[in-house]
Design a binder for these strands. Structure first.
Lengths: 203, 203
DNA sequence: AACATAAACGGACTTTACCCCGCTTGCAAC
DNA sequence: GTTGCAAGCGGGGTAAAGTCCGTTTATGTT
């Protein structure tokens, strides 16, 4: 009879059908991207192919970009695991400068791998899939701190380094010459540049 | 009677009415942005308010983002004039490192001023209004070269510095703390960070 | 098992970017 | 002034994003 004063210890987690449908939608989206490219993924199309209503798709992901962000999140989580507890030099254990360099190279490879989805996750209404960049930024700041880089403003530097790392790929700033899609060469090129930048900054 | 082999020395420049209409559209767009913000500028609305057809708007600017790019271009040109032939330290005449710092500060101020339009000019189909970034990049590369910064890859560094400079504002990467729109403080903050970064890189 | 309720669902509806194509017009050559 | 025509114009048409709201359903409670 009596109603507990605070009846919601947990906000009553996601319903089972909802979870199932989310997976189904993500799978379907992956399939559509593989088949026809990210550009061709429409909300109607996705809904229909997944056998669900359009309203459901929007309820789940809010916006078109949201789908791609969700897709990224999964891989992003795996990436972070490597960074947080994988083997050195990416993971903990190595010299912070070496880790910074390794992080940059790994991140570039990751963004290169995911650049189609990353770009599709961009959204002029809420442009930065904040998760990605922030995590990079926090990690970079931590490593700079560990490396004892003497700099007046650690926060500012980490913002800029994050931008220097992710900007070229997210903004698709000019690769060396070509305007063709990024290749493995580009990864090597950007990785080397990153290393040079870090070495220069850390003396 | 005889038809010249190459009758089109010049591709017959823009027609007078077209030029007039472009100006009219840009003015109208500026007005609408000032009144209701960039988000509220729709192609139909713009066309109607300018007393023109929707088709005309698209013929002129190609895409919605194109309008904002055109708007930026005008101011961008004035900015570049300052950089190319204004007084030092922004213009020529000062020490390259000082110019690099001045350029960054000026650019940050410019982007802050125009951040609404800049952001609106972003377009997931062709994301970087290539003009802006490239010009920054070329200028930065030139100054780095003048400064004789000994770096294995000048091009790579200039790409990264450009991203470091423009990325935070274009991507709206996290400002210090707030998620509120960028303020003058942000400009100072980013400017100081930029200066520190440049000083560190150039020893 | 029946119930209450919040969450999820679906699809019609609205809005907006962008395309198409027949009509009009500025411009230059005669 | 007439004429040829490429360029410009306009507005109806399409497709896709995002909103709304009435209906259905999972889940915790009695």
């Amino acid at each position: 009879m009596e109603r507990p004063v605070i009846p919601l210890g947990k906000p009553r987690g996601e319903r089972a059908d909802a979870a199932r449908n989310r997976e189904r939608l993500l799978d379907t989206a992956r399939g559509m991207i593989a088949e026809h490219g990210a550009e061709k993924v429409t909300m109607d199309g996705l809904a229909e192919r997944a056998g669900l209503g359009k309203g459901t798709v929007f309820r789940r992901f809010g916006t078109r970009a949201g789908i791609f962000r969700a897709l990224l999140d999964a891989d992003e989580r795996r990436f972070q695991e490597q960074v947080l507890s994988g083997p050195p030099p990416l993971g903990p254990g190595a010299d912070p400068v070496a880790r910074l360099i390794a992080y940059g190279r790994a991140r570039i490879a990751f963004l290169l791998d995911h650049h189609v989805i990353s770009r599709a996750a961009l959204d002029r209404a809420q442009p930065v899939p904040a998760g990605d960049a922030s995590v990079s930024q926090i990690h970079i700041r931590m490593l700079l701190d560990l490396a004892k880089v003497p700099v007046p403003d650690l926060n500012g530097l980490s913002i800029q380094l994050t931008a220097a790392l992710e900007g070229p790929l997210l903004l698709y700033l000019s690769m060396p010459e070509t305007s063709t899609p990024p290749s493995m060469d580009a990864g090597r090129y950007l990785g080397d540049s990153w290393q040079a930048l870090i070495e220069r900054i850390t003396h």
